[in-house]
Design a protein around this nucleic acid. Structure first.
Lengths: 160, 160
DNA sequence: GCTGAAATTCTGGAGTG
DNA sequence: CACTCCAGAATTTCAGC
């Protein structure tokens, strides 16, 4: 990775741990002026090293009582499916979509208000988007989140 | 969820999409004064609705060329293992740890610089932490991230 | 590239209806 | 709850090194 030095990497590590840290704090931690920190963060965003920022929201507060990991086995990687996944990614309750190795090539992380919503999502997936391509799926329920996106979640946080 | 109304939920949704949005911008989007937005965000953090903030970092910029999903099958949920998972969560390259249903009860999302680092992490898991408890694991390589933590990632971003 | 300093914008508290 | 007010911080821009 050209254009990115050790200080930049430290900035990335800090921002992954705390996405709302101020440039002022960063400048104290790393011993650079605020202006330099800003220049570097701007550069990192421009280079695509930082894709965005996100708050880690406890799903229950959005009435998302069901956290799931859904794996999909597709028959082929056609561009159709690729586009379908982009579309699915626009849904607010879909937190992550990953292409991966293994029996199931796609992993979706999605939250739902209840079983009915999950069921209609699965119906939606097969009917609307991945009609011929989707061979089977597997759903796991997330029982507890210990760490998420680089942020350690306090124990027993799933209580309501 | 008592204490959380529709406006609060909109705030959570916005912050999940953009964790660094200013209160001023939020106030424009939602038609409330800046002070009210701040009061609400403070409340949401206090209530634990917001667990933290994170930047989405393209792993290659941290020399993390190997993105993985590691599943663990544990023999029992003893408190030992619970503590071990907390410890593992302190590692910077471990982005997520989830307890879940299914054959494998734990899913870890972790990034590595190379195969050797992955191998020593797996050795570490079984030797150091989960000695008697760990029955087996399964590793999948993440090939592409389409959406992550509520933030859509531009297509073909995994190129290098 | 980094810096300090000025201009602008945002945040955090106190207080009001 | 939501609002205004305002002091103090943080951010942004820029000239100079």
């Amino acid at each position: 990775m050209v254009d990115v030095d050790e200080i930049d990497k430290k900035i990335l590590v800090e921002l992954r741990k705390n996405g709302r840290i101020t440039f002022t704090e960063l400048s104290k931690k790393l011993g650079l002026s605020v202006a330099s920190i800003k220049n570097r963060v701007d550069k990192l965003e421009r280079l695509g090293a930082i894709k965005g920022y996100s708050a880690l929201v406890e799903p229950a507060f959005l009435d998302e009582y069901l956290q799931t990991l859904i794996e999909l086995e597709l028959l082929a990687d056609d561009p159709q499916a690729e586009r379908a996944l982009q579309e699915i990614g626009k849904l607010e309750n879909v937190l992550g979509i990953y292409r991966k190795t293994g029996e199931f090539q796609i992993m979706i992380r999605a939250n739902f208000r209840n079983m009915d919503e999950l069921k209609s999502f699965l119906r939606f997936l097969s009917q609307r988007y991945l009609r011929k391509n989707l061979r089977r799926w597997r759903v796991a329920i997330i029982l507890d989140v210990i760490k998420d996106n680089g942020v350690q979640i306090s124990k027993g946080s799933q209580r309501r």
